[in-house]
Structures are given as C-alpha cells and as structure tokens.
Write a protein that binds this DNA or RNA. Structure first.
Length: 420
DNA sequence: CGTCCACGTCTAC
DNA sequence: TAGACCTGGACGG
C-alpha cells in the first residue's frame, strides 16, 4: 500500500478512528520488532496523526488531570511525544478490539474503553520502522501532495545535482526530491505524459519553472477517444493531461487520496476502485522492465535511451549455493486451536527469531526481454464472462501478472473503465 | 511442494 | 550497485 497517498490515508484513518478515544498505559511493542521501544506511558492521552510524503507522525498528547498538577507518578508522561513511522512495503494502521489484534501488530496503543480497543501498526514484512521523539527524516524532501510549492522549488533549484543524471523513472523514486512517489505512482505519472521512463531526468525537467503556471487552469477532463486504425486494433487516445511532470507528481497522488478509504482501509479489502484507477501499473498490455535498481518499471511505448542494456543476465545468476539450507523457521501455522484455557502466553506463536542466514533476494533481476510483436492480443477483451486471467503471464517484459499495489490480486482489468 | 513476486529503504563491499 | 531485511500470495509441477 504504502506510497504517499496511502500514508496520508493512514493518517486520516487514525484521526477518524481515534477521535475522542482516550488511550492509557504504555505503548507496547512486539517481541520480534527491531524498531526501538517507545518510552511513553500515561494514564490518559490522545492520538492524532499527520503525514508528509512517505512518513506518518503520531502525536501522543497527555490529557490534563489533577494528577498532572500533583506531579504525576514517576514515569508518567506529561508532555506530548511524536512517533514517526515509515511503512516499508507492508505497513498500515488498524484500530481493533484487543482480541482481534491483527497478526504482525508490532506497535500498539491501548484505549481505556470497556472492551479495550487498540491502535496497531501492522507490518507483515517488517521493512517499516518508527522512531520515537522523532521528526520528519531530514534527508527527505517536501511532500509532493501537501508541500507542493516547496517540492517544486526543491527540484527546480537542484537540477544540477548529479542525482538528475539518472533516468527520470529512477529519479522519481529519490525521496530527497520526490517524497511520496513510489513504484506505481512513477508509472502512472510518466504514462499520463507519455514520457519514456529511461530518458535522463534533467532533460525532462530542465525548463520547468519553480512556479506552477497551471495552477489555476481548470482541470480539463481527460477525454478518451476511441479510434479504429487500419489494422482494426482499437486504440484509446488520451487527450492532453494538464500540467507538467512536477504538477502531475502532485495531482496524480491526490487522485488516489480522493478515491478514499478503498485505497487504504484494509477493512473493506476492496481495491476495485484503485485497480480501476490504474492506467499503466500492472495493467495488461503494458510493458515492464527492471530498472537499474531492480525495480519493475511499467510503461507503454518507447523505453528511452537509458534503458538497462538488458545487461543483467538474470539467468547467469545461476542457483545460489544450496549448502546452507537449514532455516529453522519453525512455521507453526496458527492452528486456530482455541485453547481458551489459561496460559495465553506461549500460545501466541512468535514469529521466527532465528538469525538463519542466506535467503534469496527480493528484487532480483529475472528473465528479460522477449520481444514480441504486438501481433495478437487486440486488448479489447470485454467479452470475458469467465475470463480467468488466462492471458499469458510472461515476466521480464510485456505484461501483467497478479498481485500489486494495494493488493491487485486476482485478474487484471483489461479494458479502461471509461473506454466506452 | 518450490519459485517468483510485491506499494521501500538501508549499509556495506 | 549489489545484497539484506521479511512474510505471504499466486502459480507451476
């Protein structure tokens, strides 16, 4: 989930769910988490949230009480504390009753409610992190959504930075300049402007002004015009996006925010709106290649001059040694055995804490290129009916597969929503 | 069962 | 510029 829009939706979720709720006691961390303990405990405090780019900050505010004046009990906080979170690949917040704690709830805030409810930072992969008494990470630039003006100025005034020597698609992931842009957003943004992903960033950006002169232009609705070409293939022509690249880095993420909860609230695990919103990322018919950092770049048309020279011979990687395979990752599937009886301590299977070494990569280059004429597949499969994503599922280039941002599991939509 | 893939950083050679 | 860090879902055999 986590790109700028999801982090912001997470902050809205926290503010909505925790409005009026009183929290109490210490902040609790899971056994397996490597992030720092949060040294905060208070009889009664409130929680509010804000977001900036790809970070969310929770503010824990002690409530006034008689105790406060009487010099609260030792250890009790009387000053607010900020905890800054980064979501990694799988982080999110959930507010549930105590007995419905989600799996992987690594940091928890307990309310004073009767059936106690808990605000949890949930993160299955644990790539996320938090820092107490924190501030926004200094190395990250202004938020693309809510600090638009300074975001623009920061980019435009630093175009001489060597960072802009790289392909635009890779620079868009540089959080020092594009705090909030992630893998699906870079694809959607470049796609809207038809910018080849592997063109030098400076080339694409030079000439843009610090000021956004489009700001007041009415957002011309993107018209979609279906046209038939000689070969009978149906094409959809996207009519002019308003604004330059930097403006789209601001408006496109905001479109996701406006989609609402669907994008975030895992509760209603309904990502259909989000899926329908995607025009390029993981969309059937689009191309994809690994960028120089091993991340999949989705695009249409020309990849651009700086495209990876197919260099990475993924296959050359060969098997990784076999020797070490003894991961003692005791997989005790949570046998939902409802041993309601006493001892609840050990019952809670902990995530493996073994330090077992060597496991394979996450983003490792894979098969590449497989040029294929556009021949078959006139991408107009609305006939469907039972249509199980039966479509070819070649990786490395040219098209989709399952699972993606926001959980784009299952079949991919093949036709644009507004395409007729 | 095993392999591949995933919305992102981090640090170490 | 590679790995490291993780879990789990989709798929293939």
């Amino acid at each position: 989930m986590p790109e700028g829009p999801e982090l912001h939706l997470a902050s809205l979720y926290v503010n909505k769910m925790c409005n009026g709720v009183v929290f109490t006691g210490p902040v609790r961390k899971s056994e397996v988490s490597k992030s720092p303990d949060v040294p905060f405990t208070c009889e009664a405090y409130r929680i509010t949230a804000t977001s900036r780019g790809k970070e969310v900050k929770l503010t824990l505010t002690p409530m006034k009480s008689d105790d406060t004046k009487r010099k609260a009990k030792k250890g009790q906080a009387d000053q607010p504390m900020d905890v800054v979170f980064r979501f990694g690949m799988s982080g999110y917040f959930r507010f549930t009753t105590e007995d419905e704690l989600p799996k992987h709830a690594h940091l928890r805030f307990y309310s004073t409610e009767k059936p106690c409810r808990v605000l949890s930072f949930v993160d299955a992969r644990r790539f996320g992190s938090w820092q107490h008494s924190g501030t926004w990470q200094p190395s990250r630039g202004p938020c693309i959504m809510f600090e638009y003006k300074s975001f623009r100025e920061n980019v435009v005034s630093h175009l001489s930075d060597r960072a802009f020597d790289r392909p635009i698609c890779e620079v868009l992931l540089n959080q020092k300049y594009f705090n909030g842009i992630g893998n699906y957003l870079r694809a959607e943004i470049l796609f809207r402007l038809n910018i080849p992903p592997f063109v030098a960033a400076r080339t694409v950006l030079e000439g843009l002004e610090s000021e956004d002169f489009c700001e007041n232009e009415k957002p011309v609705k993107n018209e979609i015009a279906d046209t038939k070409t000689s070969d009978g293939t149906e094409h959809k022509r996207v009519k002019e996006e308003t604004g330059d690249l930097l403006r789209l880095c601001h408006t496109v993420p905001l479109e996701v925010v406006s989609l609402g909860g669907k994008g975030y609230d895992p509760e209603k695990a309904d990502y259909s709106d989000f899926q329908a919103w995607l025009q390029c990322y993981y969309v059937d018919g689009m191309k994809s290649v690994r960028d120089h950092n091993g991340r999949t770049m989705w695009f249409k048309g020309d990849p651009g001059p700086m495209a990876p020279k197919d260099s990475k011979s993924p296959k050359a990687k060969k098997r990784t040694k076999k020797e070490d395979d003894h991961d003692y990752t005791d997989k005790k599937k949570v046998a939902k055995s409802r041993s309601a009886s006493s001892a609840k301590k050990k019952a809670v299977k902990q995530e493996a804490v073994t330090k077992t070494p060597k496991r394979e990569k996450d983003a490792r280059p894979k098969e590449a290129k497989s040029k294929r004429g556009k021949t078959d597949k006139p991408l107009k499969v609305n006939t469907a009916r039972h249509e199980k994503r039966s479509t070819a599922r070649r990786r490395g280039s040219s098209n989709a597969g399952p699972t993606a941002a926001g959980g784009l599991r299952r079949s991919r939509r093949v036709t644009r929503p507004n395409g007729k």
